[in-house]
């Protein structure tokens, strides 16, 4: 595995006093794509939310780019280089596309310089995001609530990219999108991976994930049930499908 960018060790987390995660170990290396899978309610979203301080971190350790961020407030984890595409996308409805992108953007100068690879990557600018998602450029003055689901997901990805992340975290990358749009999103992620960006992606599309990802992690009842290289996925398809609840 390449040098670890995100390293989660023995993470226990939840909401209030209700514990959801029981000792999660997870690592994402630089430039690596890791698929996070599991049935509904098994803790995927809680894991993602606990990374950015939106769920209670009770025990364990989260390291990002070699820094212990376990006690960091969410915004500092984001500034360390974690770009979140949240479940449900949560684009800002009353802001137009461009404002959505600009509001939380950080300039390349503000990007963390912790990793050598990170600083070598081309910084994200508004025009680069528009090149990447021409659809967003066309709709730049439309409000968030006037966008289709696919456009919202592109916007949420573009918004995260403009925070200059070294790791993109997508919770439900293609949920609720039309098949053609899903294919767009997978291709987008492929291009980002080719550009050297590390990605942690939650989704239930086994085929697309096994094409994109390097490794997979399956959660079951708040614990890691299985993990390994994606090549395992095709060999043990039936066991894995049972775990993630795909018919």
């Amino acid at each position: 595995m390449p040098r670890p960018l995100l390293q989660v060790t023995g993470l226990e987390a939840g909401y209030g006093s209700a514990q959801v995660l029981f000792g999660i170990d997870l690592a994402v290396g630089e430039g690596e794509v890791v698929a996070l899978m599991g049935r509904n309610g098994m803790g995927k979203t809680t894991l993602v939310r606990s990374l950015v301080g939106l769920a209670n971190r009770m025990a364990g350790r989260i390291e990002f780019a070699g820094v212990d961020v376990t006690r960091f407030p969410g915004y500092r984890v984001a500034r360390a280089g974690l770009g979140l595409v949240p479940e449900g996308r949560h684009v800002f409805r009353s802001l137009d596309v461009e404002e959505n992108l600009v509001a939380t953007a950080r300039s390349a100068a503000q990007a963390p310089t912790g990793s050598a690879e990170g600083s070598a990557r081309e910084p994200w600018t508004l025009s680069r995001v528009y090149e990447f998602f021409p659809r967003l450029a066309e709709r730049r003055h439309h409000r968030g609530n006037q966008l289709s689901g696919g456009e919202q997901q592109m916007l949420a990805i573009g918004r995260a990219l403009l925070t200059q992340p070294s790791l993109l975290v997508l919770d439900e990358a293609t949920e609720g999108l039309a098949p053609l749009i899903r294919e767009d999103i997978w291709q987008t992620l492929g291009r980002l991976k080719a550009g050297g960006l590390a990605v942690l992606v939650v989704d239930r599309d086994l085929r697309a994930l096994s094409r994109l990802a390097d490794r997979y992690v399956i959660l079951d009842k708040g614990q890691v049930a299985r993990s390994g290289p994606v090549s395992d996925l095709s060999e043990q398809a039936s066991t894995i499908e049972r775990h993630i609840g795909v018919a």
Partner: peptide, 20 residues
């Protein structure tokens, strides 16, 4: 923009790196 975004969803604004 951040104030308006924060009025919609302060958690997400924070998770994107803004000190809410």
């Amino acid at each position: 923009m951040r104030i308006r975004a924060g009025a919609e969803n302060g958690d997400i604004v924070g998770a994107l790196g803004v000190n809410v």
